[in-house]
Simulated scan of single mutants.
Amino acid sequence: MSAIDIHDLTVTFPDGTVGLSGIELQVRPEEFIVLIGASGSGKTTLLRTLAGFLTPSAGHVAIGGRDVTAVPPEKRRMGMVFQQHAVWPHMSVARNVEYPLRRAGVGKRERGERVDRALELVGLGGFARRRPDSLSGGQRQRVALARAIVADPTVLLLDEALSALDEPLRDSLRRELVTLTRREGLTTVHVTHDRTEALAIADRVVVLGEGRIQQVATPQELVSRPATAEVAAFIADATLLDATALPVAPSEVMGSGSTLTLAVLPHMVEVLPAGADGIPAQVRSVLYDAGDWSLTLDALGTVFRATVRGARPEVGDPVTIRIHRPLGYLT
């Protein structure tokens, strides 16, 4: 069980590009943290810096109270799983999994016992002699996971580890991964570009943008109270409006400043028949979403998201929308 403490972490690349700027983050022991953000937001840079593959320009990283800022990756007691399986095809499953133990000089008998246990934990008991080319994509990713945990790491790092898998295998492995980290008491940091995945598996979500932390919150807090208009747009498909652009009901205002931006989340948009009292709109797209219909709506040149139940709306249908209590951000 290890906490992760990140203080004032900055990474500047040789060409002057700032990858991370002043990152402050504390991860509790056994917590499952998910890093998410748009491409170039800094999530992979942060993970690679935690792993020791990148050296920070400033700041510190501590694992379990030990400063590891200058400690090489192989001495940080971290397991890491990448998007691509990185399983060596010329080695058996057992040889793949035991590789970190061989490098650490662990004896043959103990290696065998630990490999067997790791394979059992990831659901591959009895696969030790198999070759990777005889396994499915999900099984190869389980081999990579077993290799990451076989050396009893204190921290598990996952870099888009499930994104190469197809559903429903991805959903199944996602559930197994959360169960495994809970059972083994692993502190876990997971990078993903999938918002649904982040909200489904995280204890807390870290939203990054332009190398800075935009918000750290539980999934419930993140969806119900995004800290900024940009987070609302990224996480919840909010439509961002100038406060004077649309006559709406009173909003909940957060922040301080003089310029107001409204964030209209899908659940704040009520869809009514054409001709009702409200703002005229037209259905632009319709997608089925677990019993509901997810719509995009064009209202006076502005696109909104909304969710409705019942009969399927059709693209081009005229409707009326009402906006209820959008979030207001003073900047």
Rank of each mutant, 00 (worst) to 15 (best):
P266N: 03
P14I: 06
E314W: 11
G22H: 09
V106S: 01
F234H: 00
T192P: 09
I323W: 08
V269T: 09
N96I: 01
L158G: 04
V122F: 00
E230L: 11
R129K: 11
G255S: 15
H85L: 11
A38Q: 15
G42C: 04
A311P: 15
L9S: 12
A232V: 02
A86V: 06
L173M: 09
D194E: 04
V143G: 00
I321C: 10
L162G: 06
V27S: 06
P219I: 08
G185H: 03
H193K: 08
T259C: 00
I23F: 01
Q141A: 03
G301L: 06
V303Q: 14
G137R: 00
A306H: 08
R95W: 05
I33R: 10
V253P: 00
G278K: 05
S172G: 07
T154E: 13
F13T: 14
L121R: 13
R322M: 02
S285T: 15
R305L: 11
E270W: 00
I23M: 06
S92H: 02
E74V: 09
P72T: 13
P14L: 06
T181I: 02
G107V: 00
Q214N: 05
V264Q: 02
A86P: 10
M254P: 00
L199V: 10
F13I: 05
A245K: 05
P56N: 14
M1A: 15
A276R: 04
Q83P: 11
G79M: 03
V81W: 01
R195S: 01
L262P: 14
V18R: 10
D67P: 14
E24H: 11
G291W: 05
S163R: 02
E31L: 05
N96R: 02
T261Q: 14
W88V: 13
S136G: 09
R129G: 01
V34Y: 07
A236D: 15
G123M: 02
A232S: 04
A151N: 11
P326G: 02
R114Q: 12
P153Y: 03
R129L: 00
A281Y: 07
D5S: 10
A236K: 02
R147N: 01
P89K: 02
S256N: 12
R117K: 08
I63A: 05
Y99Q: 08
S256H: 15
Q282G: 13
G301Y: 08
F82H: 03
R325N: 07
A238R: 10
P280M: 07
A233E: 13
V308H: 10
Y99T: 14
G211R: 01
I213E: 12
I4Y: 04
V303H: 14
F53G: 07
D292R: 15
A238S: 11
K75G: 12
R109A: 12
L54K: 07
I149L: 03
S285V: 11
D67C: 10
V264F: 03
L54D: 09
V27D: 04
Q214V: 07
V97M: 04
Y288N: 11
D133H: 04
H90Q: 07
A3D: 15
